[in-house]
Design a protein around this nucleic acid. Structure first.
Lengths: 302, 302
DNA sequence: CGGGGCGGTGTCCGTTTTGCACCGCCACGA
DNA sequence: TCGTGGCGGTGCAAAACGGACACCGCCCCG
């Protein structure tokens, strides 16, 4: 939309940290860019950038303006999607920031189910750290977040919570596989593999271990839940994951056992959005579907 | 702000109902206006107006766009006022839609008190019908509403309520002045003057009268509370008003007596804003001051 | 059946914006 | 210490954009 072009330029400058670089990114000359920025600053009534010897940086006023721009832009695409909706087009786009555990089963199923009813709707899925999620929403890069144990602050608005106990993954012939529920102490005494510390599951495990004055000692530490899941087939190790990311394999070679909640507290899978924002129709509908599904899952187990 | 100029034109067209009239209002030619509108429609992806033989009218898409524009514009002035605020300027503007009863004492006092601390802040006060208030807020023409018995719907967000019993105004030597509280029946048997039916006080009186199967029979019916207040000095009549609009005159010629609440229910004076909107700093601060004052008044009487 | 008001278009022209060349400034490194 | 390269900013000419004017077809109404 052309009426936001100046803001687009401002954003580019803020991102590049220099007018010349931003000008190149936006395929205009530095002088034209410079003039637009100064023009806007004059019209707005206050500078948006600190001029430094080696570039520029947004000042507080600039931050506010950028916030206005992002909100404004997202609001506009919402209006456009509403208009498309009332023209009966049923088109739209949903962007989701999510945790890795949602990738194998939950999200593909939900997206396919939604697309079955709304073939015009497209999706983008961004895997994000539990710490990055809030900013992802705040900068309007994603409409929805579906995250395990997010570190959430004021701007994060919870739509629905699903408790997820930490679950151990073991080979079917692992000695501990006989028990219906595992104690953390037992797990730590066996060879185990764990996600790296930026993940919620690891956070909960570390918390539980500290309580009994023990530490995790993973033989493999990785960012990939996939790797963990497959590793337990090769060495008799214990992996950890949350139920929503797990389905028992057809051959029965791997089994899942909950870790006792008195040892490791259950975490929460949270569906959320940016506080106070009204989502585009497609995102709002999809969010309702997911919320309903989470509610159903909560009903099954609890 | 220049980047919203097209929307300004769209608004003018929507208001005028015709491009040519709007063009005249905006001091450009109809052709230029026409092209901007069509240009925007093309860029936006959908027409905003129904073309009728004798003009144009906003279609639903256009309504949505106008809403976006108004929200966007108000958001921008909010950002500007925030920037002014962080520059320590303490400037700003507060617009209030209010009922007539607030005009003589409450609002002047509150505005003066606020301006004593913030001399850079200016006010606009719009007297509005209790039915018009919501739209006033929804179109961002006023930031705040301070109204007696508003007809409020979803978009109206209540900040604070102050109960206001209907109060009779009589000459000090009126026969009923001897009683500390008046019954509605007694009032109706005397000569009385009343506000016209669009006012909350009248609404409550009518309601009370219907309950005892009587009707108001005012010898003077007027939109002016001032007129009512002064009329009771000239003929021995009973007028009606709410306490916040009344101060006993120094000469004691006129007295106020509450009407029994079992006859006429107390109404509510309501401070509100548009739901979900974040107000400019000045308006938000003023709203806090008024809310605190209303709370203090509620404490005194209740 | 014509006149007046409406939205829309073709053409011209002025204003605005852009690109190019260049300035002064500052940090950095030979 | 003195280039040197990158930075933001500016003067000037060319290009692009948007507005004004004249005019079209349409429809309502007298």
């Amino acid at each position: 939309m052309r009426h936001l072009y100046t803001f687009q330029l401002i954003e580019a400058v803020a991102r590049a940290g220099s007018m010349r670089k931003a000008a190149e990114d936006m395929n205009i000359t530095a002088s034209a860019l410079n003039r637009r920025i100064r023009g806007f600053e004059a019209e707005f009534g206050s500078p948006l950038f600190e001029r430094l010897p080696n570039g520029v940086r947004l000042n507080p006023a600039g931050e506010l303006v950028m916030h206005y721009y992002r909100a404004s832009r997202s609001e506009l695409v919402r209006v456009q999607s509403q208009v498309a909706d009332l023209a009966g087009e049923r088109r739209g786009h949903v962007s989701i920031a999510c945790s890795q555990a949602l990738l194998p089963y939950f999200l593909p199923e939900e997206m396919a189910r939604y697309r079955a009813g709304h073939p015009g709707v497209t999706f983008s899925v961004n895997v994000r750290d539990r710490a990055q999620v809030e900013q992802e929403l705040a900068t309007y890069q994603s409409d929805l977040a579906l995250v395990f144990e997010p570190i959430y602050l004021v701007d994060f608005q919870v739509i629905r919570i699903l408790p997820q106990p930490v679950t151990a993954i073991l080979a079917a012939d692992h000695p501990l596989a006989a028990k219906p529920e595992l104690r953390l102490r037992d797990c730590l005494e066996h060879v185990h593999v764990a996600p790296s510390s930026s993940y919620g599951v690891r956070h909960l495990l570390d918390f539980g271990a500290r309580r009994i004055e023990r530490r995790l000692n993973p033989v493999v530490e990785t960012e990939s839940f996939d790797l963990i899941r497959h590793y337990v087939r090769h060495e008799r190790a214990i992996g950890f994951q949350i139920p929503i990311g797990l389905r028992p394999p057809a051959d029965g070679s791997v089994v899942f056992r909950p870790v006792a909640e008195r040892d490791v507290p259950a975490g929460s899978l949270i569906l959320g959005q940016m506080r106070g924002r009204s989502l585009p129709v497609a995102s709002a509908r999809f969010s309702e579907q997911v919320a309903a599904r989470l509610a159903a899952l909560a009903g099954e187990t609890g």
